[in-house]
Design a binder for these strands. Sequence first.
DNA 1: TCTGGGGTCCTAGGACCC
DNA 2: TCTGGGGTCCTAGGACCC
Length: 444
Amino acid sequence: MRTSASVLHLDLDAFFASVEQRDKPSLRGKPVVVGGVGGRGVVATASYEARKYGVRSAMSTREARSRCPHAAFLTGRFHAYREASAIVMGLLRSVSPLVEPLSLDEAFVDLAAADLPDLELATCVAVAEDLRARVHEATGGLTASVGLGTSKFIAKVASDLDKPDGLTVVPPGTERDLLRPMLVTVIPGVGPATAERLRRAGIQTVADLELVDLEELVRLVGKAHGNGLFHLARAQDDRLVVAEREAKSVSVEGTYDTDLTDRKLMEGLLTRQAGEVAERLRKHGLSGRTVSIKVRLHDFTTLSRSSTLSSPTDSTATVARMARGLLADLDTSGGVRLLGVGVSGLADWIQEDLFGETTEEEVEPLPEVEVPSSRRRTWSPGMDVEHTTMGRGWVWGAGRGVVTVRFETAASASGPVRSYPDDDPELSAWRPADPDETAPAPPA
DNA sequence: TCTGGGGTCCTAGGACCC
DNA sequence: TCTGGGGTCCTAGGACCC
């Protein structure tokens, strides 16, 4: 443990919402909610004005709307957030070379690696106050809450104690007294599931936790977690501030406003996601051996399937084919609300291509991968054409890469509904030719 | 029509090798 | 003929974080 309060944690207050209020004066002083605005969206950030109404991060947007109907609901402008974040991270790096970003709005700074005359409390506090002022100025008015302590854990707890726009210092030696009355959920890694297990064992505060011996803790929550809790409960935290961390996986996923049932559509969406993942791999000079898909069913049960290649790939075609192959295994007849594709087992080198440039248009050979015979199956989609008798379809809804079309049939002007990826060539044939024509009313 | 998206880390079981 | 370990890799699921 260090003896000086030289770990600094900085957290930008209500970050996304604050950027929106900064850029749009009419939103200042008003409740602002940034997050998914679709039927299945959740809140990413609520401004302090919205929090007064009980709107919280991770709450469904539906609930946020019912709690605070007059709030502005925004989808978010990520490059504005990235830009503001880059300014702040730059300021932090001007203080110390050792900066560990945790997300766009949060970072640790190791003042022991900074060029300071000493690490006395007063010196660290002066640095922190100066930093807060500079963040405010350089970002056009964003505020930050800062904590200073002898470890990451303590600095992070501290930054939370005086929000928004505050600074909290935990003097060396006072850590355990600070933690004892707090709930176990202040400890990073203690979420709802762990808190409930501990509660059943009569453990609610850090003081309670301190009384439990290591063996008992490991029995309760497992080896790694138990060990971690044992030490954090005693404010023992040796984790270093690390500037560079290598990515371990790259993934893309999406939740759809209505459940998907069409396998062809699912394959189309997985193919598109595979393309985004592969593009990000290539952009960062990465490739990976393990391709995974994630499928969340209508009832929220979440399945994952993965398959590992003998050598890493960054090819759209390979990732897409593997993703579709993994889907073939799953029963999705009840409907799917989320699909995702990921690549892990990353290597930061790109495989030598013995045959020169390979373009994405070329069909690559099937990857070498062991497939259990029970899974060896070919999915041959193929549109059924029963809905096409009238030769007309109405674009019914669109969003998140999906276009829903209602078809007319010989029997009914308001026939079956099908959904397509919005770049599906089949789709263009199904847009109504005459833009003035009105679509039939939706069914009740 | 409760429940995002992009990640990390851990656990547990089975395969496989020595 | 019977009975081992340990280590590593892979897969699936779950908890957690911001």
